[in-house]
């Protein structure tokens, strides 16, 4: 009798596992990846953005970046440019949200003006790069539907196993119909992402390199390159000087803080 119950229980569990659809599996993995990335409280890093045009001509922007975990909501982030000198002090503050549109402000140092900007600019370019705002800020996991596609060797040649997952943004204003991500099963890092436009054409590829483990818990890439297949341009974001549990407060993510950071 006891044995029968146990077997029944095991069968139930097994069938529940079996019954997990590809969509549920995709969502579960995304959720696990999200939870794995939590707990840094606040972080800061230095960034460099290298823009390459079709002919290979490069130009560089440098900036400081900071982020704050918000209990019950998506992160707050601030980016303040330092280079080239004509945009020194230019800043972008984002209060991202789980379900409604993000709140965004731009600081223009030339006339000391903090300007509310339309968060509808998901598809707009970030600082002239091939990254759009939604590539950087609109990645909160609950904003997508998921489908697990398959498991395969990771495209970074490391020999590790990756989940290949398709995600589709809920947002009708998104520039994408879907994205395909390759996620390393060991550590939830994402070495490669394909972006498909509304006509389902593969238009951009994002490749992340040099993942390092910080504070024994947080994986971050040294460089992320976005290649635009439509116009032949590419942009590389390099990050360094990572600090986690950086001691930043809510007060460091206000309009006034944006203005003061640009001084």
């Amino acid at each position: 009798m006891i044995r029968a119950t146990t077997i029944l229980l095991l069968l139930t569990i097994a069938s529940a596992a079996w019954a997990e659809s590809a969509d549920e599996k995709g969502f579960r993995i995304a959720q696990e990846a999200h939870e794995d990335s939590r707990g840094f409280q606040s972080s800061s890093n230095m960034g460099e953005m290298i823009l390459r045009d079709r002919s290979g001509k490069e130009s560089t922007r440098r900036y400081q970046s900071r982020a704050l975990e918000v209990p019950g909501d998506a992160d707050k982030t601030m980016i303040v440019f330092e280079w080239p000198r004509d945009i020194d002090g230019l800043g972008l503050l984002t209060h991202a949200h789980k379900t409604r549109d993000d709140d965004q402000w731009l600081y223009l140092p030339s006339n000391k003006r903090v300007k509310r900007i339309s968060s509808g600019g998901r598809t707009g370019s970030f600082a002239g790069s091939e990254f759009s705002y939604e590539d950087l800020a609109g990645t909160y996991y609950e904003r997508f539907d998921y489908t697990w596609l398959r498991d395969e060797a990771c495209p970074d040649g490391s020999g590790r196993l990756c989940w290949v997952i398709e995600r589709r943004p809920h947002d009708r204003e998104s520039g994408y119909s879907r994205q395909v991500i390759w996620m390393v099963q060991d550590n939830y890092t994402v070495p490669q992402t394909f972006f498909f436009d509304r006509k389902n054409t593969h238009i951009k590829t994002m490749v992340s390199n040099g993942y390092k483990l910080y504070d024994g818990k947080f994986w971050r890439a040294d460089s992320i390159t976005m290649t635009n297949l439509r116009n032949g341009r590419s942009s590389t974001m390099k990050a360094s000087d990572f600090k986690f549990s950086a001691g930043l407060l809510d007060r460091d993510f206000t309009r006034r803080a944006l203005e003061n950071a640009g001084r």
């Binding site: 549109d101 709140d103 900007i117």
Partner: peptide, 9 residues
């Protein structure tokens, strides 16, 4: 006052 609605300000 500024009110944001999608692409509108």
């Amino acid at each position: 006052a500024t009110y944001v609605y999608e692409e509108w300000l």
